[in-house]
């Protein structure tokens, strides 16, 4: 398994570094986004939005945590499906499936580079935000942040597996991740607190893992809340992870069985 993952990482590094400009742009883009969010935040007066009180009344801190986390978790969700699609379009998927590497190792291996790049982007968000601009992240609770991040990731991974199964089966671009990412931006509280949404949408937002993930992350990163204080959202994330994972495994198995039955591998 290690050899497979390392081989995939090395391959993706080589492919990414063959276009250094594109690789550099992924970091530079964050450098443009952070000041944009800062100046946007200056339009929101301290205390003008009661819902921001939980974020220390500072919109910039609120939105930086939201955008950085959403970037990372969306990449985590979409990485595997995007990699599968690339292999389909490149005609390499058959070659991968005829080799004895296990599917879980392959799925993790082909996703890891994109996840690491997204993690790097999230780090650049936080580094730029806390070093260059005034933020309210000094009281962050590392244990709370770690628990919230780990459980959000655990809840997003099965969604990514479902998306990968969809791409394998239908040989179409990943509609599931794109749709979920858009819905999450609208409802999960990336740019604004969910409390500003109408009641029906607020209720719908509770069915998205990212809503709980962002709420827990903000409480831990901005207010310094520990795992005990985040119990409600952490339990919801755990329920998503435990509930979705078997479904995702079954979907992947079904997709693999079906493509071996039909012989329809590439796009």
């Amino acid at each position: 398994m290690t050899a497979t993952i390392l081989a995939c990482l090395r391959r993706d590094y080589l492919l990414a570094s063959s276009s250094r400009l594109a690789l550099a742009w992924q970091v530079v883009a964050v450098g443009f986004a952070v000041p944009t969010l800062y100046y946007l935040g200056r339009m929101v007066h301290l205390g003008a939005v009661p819902a921001l009180r939980a974020a220390g009344g500072d919109y910039f801190t609120f939105v930086v945590v939201g955008v950085a986390a959403a970037t990372f978790f969306s990449a985590m969700m979409g990485a595997c499906a995007a990699a599968v699609r690339n292999e389909q379009l490149g005609g390499t998927i058959e070659t991968l499936l005829v080799l004895p590497a296990s599917f879980p190792a392959l799925a993790l291996g082909v996703s890891l580079w994109a996840i690491l790049v997204a993690a790097g982007q999230a780090c650049v968000y936080f580094a730029l935000a806390s070093m260059v601009f005034p933020t309210h992240l000094a009281h962050a609770n590392p244990a709370g942040v770690l628990c919230a991040a780990a459980l959000t990731a655990a809840a997003q991974v099965p969604l990514g597996m479902l998306a990968a199964a969809f791409v394998l089966l239908f040989r179409r671009p990943d509609l599931l991740t794109g749709t979920l990412a858009s819905v999450s931006v609208l409802l999960a509280g990336v740019f604004y607190p969910t409390s500003v949404l109408p009641p029906a949408l607020r209720r719908a937002a509770e069915y998205l893992p990212l809503t709980h993930g962002l709420r827990a992350l903000r409480m831990a990163a901005i207010q310094g809340a520990g795992p005990a204080a985040l119990a409600g959202d952490l339990a919801a994330l755990l329920a998503f992870a435990v509930g979705l994972f078997p479904v995702a495994v079954l979907a992947c198995r079904f997709a693999l069985h079906e493509i071996r039955r039909s012989g329809a591998f590439s796009a």
């Binding site: 290690t2 050899a3 497979t4 390392l6 081989a7 995939c8 090395r10 391959r11 080589l14 492919l15 063959s18 490149g90 005609g91 390499t92 058959e94 070659t95 991968l96 080799l99 004895p100 590497a101 392959l106 590439s266």
Partner: peptide, 25 residues
């Protein structure tokens, strides 16, 4: 056979596939 990564060299391609066969670097 189209099953290669065209931006990688022949050696890099085979090193990748060797990894999937369980071989270390």
């Amino acid at each position: 056979d189209q099953g290669f990564y065209w931006r990688l060299s022949g050696l890099e391609n085979l090193e990748f596939f060797a990894g999937l066969l369980g071989m270390h670097a």
